[in-house]
Simulated assay, not measured.
Amino acid sequence: MNRSFVRTIAAASLLSIASLPLYAEEEMSDAMKSSHSAMEKAFNQESSKEEVFEPFDPDSPDFNPNGDDINAYFYAGLSREQSDDLDVWMVESGVRMLFDDNWSGRAHVLMFWDDRKSFLDGMNFGGSGALLYSVGSFDPDFSVRPVLGAGFYIADNGCEDTTTCDEDVTGGVFPEVGLSIITGGIELYGYTRYVFHPELDDGAQIGASIGYKL
């Protein structure tokens, strides 16, 4: 074996040994780059999953403060009010809107007449409103709940004969106590009110209505 061949082998061995750190360093650099890329990708994926808060748009068809259903009932009822001045029958029709499980509001139109005709003459028309509180939890399938509330009504009297009709307008305010029974989209409601009139004797009113869920 000649010296030239030995020198060549030795030089190649030294070159191989010297290149090992360089290769290791390059491999570590590649590994670090791959690790950094994987971490960045995972971070971006996690960030994309975060929910972005967007306020409700009242004009959006999906916006409904009462949930999926609008808890409103169209109803019609009959009541009678009696006092020293009045013996009045009232037919009322309107809408009751449930704001939440307990609070609701009612608005209706009414027609009424006085059997005795001592104060009112003919058919009279007016409007009424009330704020109601139902005791207990609301269940659209079936619920029986007592109701407390207060309201008012005002009406234009159909005065044709001034000898029997002293006022053009009548009205009053009242507390209300009732019982609501809801089942299958139907509400049965019985109530009593005590009506305070500004210029007439106060009187008790009792009535009942039936409502249908809109």
Rank of each mutant, 00 (worst) to 15 (best):
P198I: 02
R3V: 03
T164H: 02
S79A: 08
Y189H: 15
L188T: 07
D87V: 05
Y194K: 14
L86F: 12
Y153L: 12
A155R: 00
A12G: 01
E50T: 08
A12N: 07
V147T: 15
Y73K: 10
S209N: 09
A208F: 09
N66T: 15
Q205W: 00
T162R: 13
M32R: 15
P58D: 04
Y23E: 07
E27F: 08
N2Q: 05
S209M: 09
R106D: 15
K117H: 01
A204I: 13
D139V: 08
F142P: 00
D30F: 12
R193N: 12
Y133A: 05
H36W: 12
E160T: 10
K213E: 14
Q45P: 00
G171K: 05
E51K: 10
Y212Q: 11
G127V: 02
K49F: 00
A24V: 08
L15C: 12
P21K: 08
A24E: 08
T192R: 03
N71Y: 06
L86R: 00
V109K: 03
K33R: 14
A38E: 13
I9A: 13
V88Y: 02
M39H: 08
D57Q: 05
E199F: 15
R96C: 03
F196G: 06
E46N: 10
V91A: 12
A204W: 13
V147E: 15
I210H: 04
W89T: 10
N64H: 07
M123T: 10
T170W: 04
W113T: 09
P198H: 05
S180F: 00
G151R: 03
D69L: 06
I181D: 04
E160K: 13
M32G: 07
T170M: 11
G122R: 01
L120H: 01
A10W: 06
M32P: 00
S19L: 09
A10D: 14
N66F: 12
D85L: 12
R96N: 11
P58S: 04
S83V: 11
S60N: 10
V95H: 01
P175N: 05
S118R: 06
Y75L: 08
I181K: 02
L20D: 02
F138C: 03
F74E: 04
V147Y: 02
W89Q: 04
D68T: 05
G185Q: 03
S143T: 10
D84M: 06
E27A: 15
F196Y: 12
G151H: 05
D141Y: 10
D62W: 10
E187A: 07
E51H: 04
A18E: 07
G158P: 00
P61Q: 08
F152K: 03
L98A: 07
G94I: 01
T164E: 05
V88Q: 03
P55A: 10
A42P: 01
D202N: 15
V91Q: 01
S19D: 05
P140D: 15
V95D: 01
